[in-house]
Design a protein around this nucleic acid. Structure first.
Lengths: 205, 205
DNA sequence: TACTAAATACCCCCACCGGGGTATTTTTTT
DNA sequence: AAAAAAATACCCCGGTGGGGGTATTTAGTA
């Protein structure tokens, strides 16, 4: 019987090393490649035959969700499992819509990841606690932040002013102010200080 | 020859599993325990003889820096290595002051962590790119924050304005502004946003 | 194709922040 | 008792932030 061919992606090399060892402890798994961001994953998929891709959500260049979307459109037969730090409600719709096969928190053991891979490989899906924070609460509307908005938040956290941010991003100061305004509205916050606190507490920064 | 006895702490179980495998691949290392936060680490240290503790910075309950401080005061002979996601300048002063023995980014390979542990165990220190920022030159000017100033910082983090803070503390708005001004000067920061980020990263909030 | 979200850019306005001072009173330390 | 540190309070001023709009262009999706 052939092994399950796996690609793993995480922006922290040390986590990659760990995951590889975790998965290699099963002799029916084979980690064929590692990647540090979504773009690398797509490059690797061009040259490798792969059964399953394990993606961290938070990655530079191209995050896990975007990458999963690409994978599912380019290689529908490839299974995708998302690894995430926090149970972020905003991702769930995306995850379901894209048709991601599995999703679990980094909070799980290596064995559970192995189980998830085995289950997904057999054609089933594997969702961790995700259903807990799935959209039961129709009351609370989720306003997901765009990439640009997150970029703005990070720079606000560095203490840059609107005009400074505008300079680094080569856009108008007005645009930066609009973004900040929209961010505060989406998150129902009322100052940059609150925003930074929120961002740090939610893994945005 | 006895093995190097190691405790590893990270709030993500899967990362712990990975790290354990990475370190166990060396037969002169022994991972005696794992912890999900700083409090657990301290409990484990009461019952175990340990050479080295590897701490993630971002953990609930008690973060890596706070935990390191405790360890160094309670068990000075125990070596501490900090694992961090980003090279955050704000941590460096703390890290140096506390006397942490090693510090490296999660961006490194498992082998580099092993090397760091071996080196630290031999009595040397191991600093990744971090030392680019460090400035052990001469006297580090210490500008300790007063209790009142910390009180102000917390309220700033809640998004309160000067006048709102003034109301809750029954002092003049001018006084609040003076405090904030002094705080920014002491810490060499230039906006409340930077301040909040600094405060959260240093356990002030 | 039409629809939608995102990014872009601009208007007005006032309150607040950041930075520069000075100065008095209270508390703590020497 | 004297010195140092902390907390208090006030002045000025320019730039920024936060909140209310509107509108165009671009990109992705149905």
């Amino acid at each position: 019987m052939s092994k399950v061919r796996i690609i793993i992606a995480d922006d922290h090399q040390i986590v990659l090393d760990g995951l590889k060892l975790v998965l290699s402890s099963r002799d029916d798994f084979e980690v064929v490649a590692q990647a540090g961001n979504g773009v690398e994953v797509l490059n690797l998929l061009e040259k490798n035959i792969v059964d399953i891709v394990v993606l961290d959500i938070n990655m530079p260049e191209m995050d896990g969700i975007k990458c999963a979307k690409k994978i599912k459109s380019l290689y529908p037969q490839v299974k995708v499992i998302i690894l995430t730090m926090y149970a972020q409600k905003s991702f769930v719709e995306e995850i379901v819509k894209i048709g991601i096969d599995g999703c679990l928190l980094k909070n799980n053991t290596g064995k559970e990841l192995s189980d998830a891979i085995a289950r997904v490989h057999s054609g089933k899906s594997y969702y961790d606690q995700i259903q807990n924070f799935s959209k039961d609460d129709s009351e609370e509307k989720e306003y997901p932040l765009s990439e640009r908005e997150i970029e703005i938040i990070r720079k606000l956290g560095d203490g840059l002013t609107s005009s400074q941010i505008a300079d680094t991003l080569f856009i108008s100061e007005h645009t930066v102010k609009t973004h900040r305004k929209n961010i505060l509205k989406k998150l129902d916050l009322h100052s940059s200080s609150e925003l930074i606190q929120y961002a740090l507490n939610n893994g945005i920064i």
